[in-house]
């Protein structure tokens, strides 16, 4: 079943891809025999055949993820999204301390160790990467190093 769903989505997307390749993409003028649309057309035809075959003969029958695992994955996904949203406005240090502390706590560390880990990674990571290695990281409201 999961293979079927995936193949169906893939087929749907490759049909859209094919529609663009056959009807939308056009060069205003060109000298070469093959324009920008030829290669996507070729790919889309093969992809439609492949995803169609997968739809008819799925291989994986069971996705095998239980409720608790789905919940954990969803929480981690939400944390990552939050980290991405806050990364620039709060700067590397604050966002990383928050993200590392909360994530390691949720995945099983005790509060105290999680907080120590978060602080260590956030501050240490900034000093190492922005200070020593001279990489570009957002400083946020804190003063730049």
């Amino acid at each position: 079943m999961p293979d079927r769903i995936f193949a169906a989505v893939l087929l749907f997307l490759s049909l859209i891809y094919a529609f663009y390749a056959f009807f939308v993409i056009k060069a205003p003028f060109q000298y070469d025999p093959l324009g920008p649309e030829a290669w996507p057309r070729l790919l889309s035809v093969i992809m439609i055949l492949c995803s169609g075959a997968l739809l008819l003969r799925p291989l994986v029958q069971n996705f095998d993820v239980d409720g608790a695992t789905w919940k954990r994955l969803a929480i981690v996904l939400a944390l990552l999204a939050g980290y991405a949203v806050l990364f620039e406005p709060l700067g590397f240090i604050i966002s990383t301390v928050l993200f590392a502390t909360v994530t390691s706590r949720l995945l099983g560390a005790v509060w105290k160790r999680a907080a120590l880990f978060g602080l260590g990674v956030g501050v240490g990571g900034y000093l190492l990467c922005a200070g020593l290695l001279d990489l570009n990281l957002p400083a946020g409201p804190l003063p730049r190093l």
């Binding site: 981690v76 990552l80 980290y83 991405a84 990364f87 620039e88 590397f92 990383t96 993200f99 590392a100 994530t103 390691s104 995945l107 099983g108 560390a109 999680a114 880990f117 990674v121 990571g125 990467c129 990489l135 570009n136 990281l137 957002p138």
Partner: peptide, 25 residues
């Protein structure tokens, strides 16, 4: 190394890497 430290570390390394090169959220 317990997994609960390893997992956030991977995310932080990935974020540092992508942001420091491309600089686009």
């Amino acid at each position: 190394i317990p997994q609960h430290y390893l997992t956030p570390l991977i995310a932080i390394l990935a974020f540092i890497g992508i942001y420091s090169i491309v600089g686009n959220p």
